[in-house]
Design a binder for these strands. Structure first.
Lengths: 123, 123
DNA sequence: TGCAATAGGGCTAAATTGGTCCCTATGTGA
DNA sequence: TCACATAGGGACCAATTTAGCCCTATTGCA
């Protein structure tokens, strides 16, 4: 487990938000769970660019922040289902708004990002 | 300038959003500029926990993504004012929604974050 | 003269995040 | 028997982000 060396800022709302939503895949995880993809393996298939490892880590963080919870079925092979807590559910409209804005401006965003991309593919 | 080694994902809206809004202070910068704190030194005073250096870098990125623009007054000592572009302005309601959710749940968020904090202050 | 304010870039190091590889365990189908 | 699916954790390394320090230049104030 990584141990922080600096205290995070927790003053304004945006600081707090950062603590729970920073993480490359967290918003997507919440969104997909909301859409009904609840098993870890489903989520991994929905987000193939993320490594299995990191998805697990981020799911655990979402869980520790009480945005999601999981049910572990005592069967073999193992079966687990994540679901949004009420708290997590209350965040869905916000993520929806973010996604909607981004979708509306998709073309432009992609253009801007690519234009500013400093990218040197390696051998 | 840092040169990326991996291509970012640009498929869904949330990927794109990540590219423009990831950055510890970006949302706050946009918000404060929106509130009328437009000069770099004002922004630095509003966000004292950020290093001067990083604020400059993130402002430049916001600029390259056309969310903000600046006017450079040819005077001494130098004077610069940032303002939101229409594009940046369109993002304000979204940031507002994020901030509002976080403010509504401030207590709980702070509690959850602190509870899960693995923090070891150094000598 | 010496110091603060103003804006911002270069360089390097520290902190944090993400990814790879490997290991546990068990049931099912080829 | 071997491969695959299922869920997840440890060790370790790579990529990325943030911070710290120093330098430019000019005006005004003590």
């Amino acid at each position: 487990m990584y141990e922080r060396k600096t205290m995070p800022n927790l003053q304004c709302g945006l600081d707090l938000m950062g603590e729970v939503l920073y993480g490359k895949w967290k918003m997507r995880l919440l969104w997909f769970i909301h859409q009904g993809f609840q098993r870890p393996s489903e989520l991994q298939r929905k987000i193939p660019d993320a490594s299995r490892r990191v998805l697990n880590v981020q799911l655990k963080e979402l869980e520790s922040h009480e945005l999601v919870a999981k049910v572990i079925y005592p069967v073999l092979p193992p079966k687990v289902e994540y679901y949004l807590t009420d708290f997590g559910q209350s965040l869905i409209p916000v993520i929806g708004a973010i996604g909607q804005w981004a979708d509306q401006h998709e073309e432009r965003l992609r253009m801007l990002i690519v234009k500013n991309l400093e990218f040197s593919p390696q051998s």
